[in-house]
Design a binder for these strands. Structure first.
Lengths: 206, 206
DNA sequence: CCTTGGTGTAAGCACCTGCTTACATACCGT
DNA sequence: ACGGTATGTAAGCAGGTGCTTACACCAAGG
């Protein structure tokens, strides 16, 4: 090893300011996970860069790769962490309304589940990302399908999920007026009534 | 068959050697427009690169910038060319069904209107792109709103459009089963019935 | 003390992006 | 024929991307 490596960079030690940043792998891992969750929700997968994520977490981007291996793996962990909680905690007959309100009340606190929003904003991305998103969609659609009593319940469940995501798309991502500013209660009522017609409609053309 | 469409353009009268590129600005401009239309529909705005577009058109990418100035301007021309035709040629009460079928019958010939598909696949993109897409969405929603007789017709129109795009999203972009393989007639019937409930529902909660 | 291994960082790599420039070539009026 | 110009091309630029590497630090453990 050459002697020149002894050269000091004279950079301020990270912990010198009030000792705030202790060396804690789990902690910074979580910082990265939180920052990624926010940025994926705000910009989608492609437009959220690893530099932005690391910057928001306040750490070096190399740590992101040390702890998660790749941007895609990080995305996978973010989706796995948030996505399924709401699904398990909500009874099927209320799932549509709860998920819809989750998207309508956008500023619903920092801990709100924004995985559907992440889905919407990331949809144009690479095929591997689409794969991950399809998984979450399948789970929602399966639950919704149980609400339709007709034999083609799975298809009706897909159509219900389509509407759920379509509404989120128009309101949150596109910002289409008057939908974007509409009262969540009104939107839920209108959608709920038509949804009932969908799920309880005649099972076959006759 | 993208190769066939390339040589199908015959604008200039002089039809000499088949393999050679006649120098025809209008012709290559149109080649670029066609290639861009296809690639934007297949991959969305961001993932369709100018190199790919020029390559599919069989010309040098520098020509793309000579004729259109920028990728965004090219996108604008593509959207302006295709988007509004279907809207004008369709009576309002059939718009939902026609647009829905336009997305369900995906391989509907090379001249089919795929602007809605372009919208869906480009949604995650930059804000300026979102602006362009919002314009087309507004036109559709305005027409759909006239179908609702209630005073909140505009909101119901937005919800109808949300569903239209949501179905396209799930079927074309995500490929969600069983929706992706479902019979278009069945999908149209299910959606149409519930849509009627939406548009003709009670005007106010009371 | 000093080694050792986990934690943090700056710098860089290879590639891709939209876009530009300098140059070659074919067409057309004279 | 010929020169000017419209048309086409190859090469390159500046910036951004995910990801890697070489190195500095800090806290334990001998």
């Amino acid at each position: 090893m050459p002697e020149a490596t002894r050269r000091a960079v004279e950079v301020a030690p990270c912990g010198s300011t009030a000792g705030e940043h202790r060396r804690d792998a789990q902690g910074t891992r979580r910082l990265l996970l939180d920052a990624a969750s926010q940025l994926f929700a705000e910009r989608g997968y492609e437009r959220a860069t690893v530099r932005d994520i690391a910057s928001r977490a306040g750490v070096n981007q190399a740590l992101l790769f040390r702890y998660f291996g790749s941007k895609k793996a990080l995305f996978g962990e973010v989706m796995a962490r948030g996505g399924h909680e709401q699904l398990r905690a909500t009874p099927p007959e209320r799932l549509f309304e709860v998920a819809l309100r989750g998207m309508l009340d956008e500023g619903g606190g920092p801990g709100a589940d924004r995985s559907l929003e992440v889905c919407l904003r990331s949809i144009g991305g690479s095929d591997e990302i689409g794969e991950a998103l399809r998984g979450l969609g399948d789970e929602y659609a399966d639950v919704l399908a149980t609400l339709a009593r007709a034999e083609d319940g799975a298809l009706r469940g897909d159509l219900a999920l389509s509407w759920l995501l379509g509404i989120g798309l128009m309101r949150v991502v596109v910002g289409k007026e008057p939908l974007a500013s509409a009262d969540p209660d009104t939107v839920c009522r209108l959608a709920g009534e038509a949804l009932a017609a969908l799920l309880e409609g005649a099972p076959k053309a006759e």
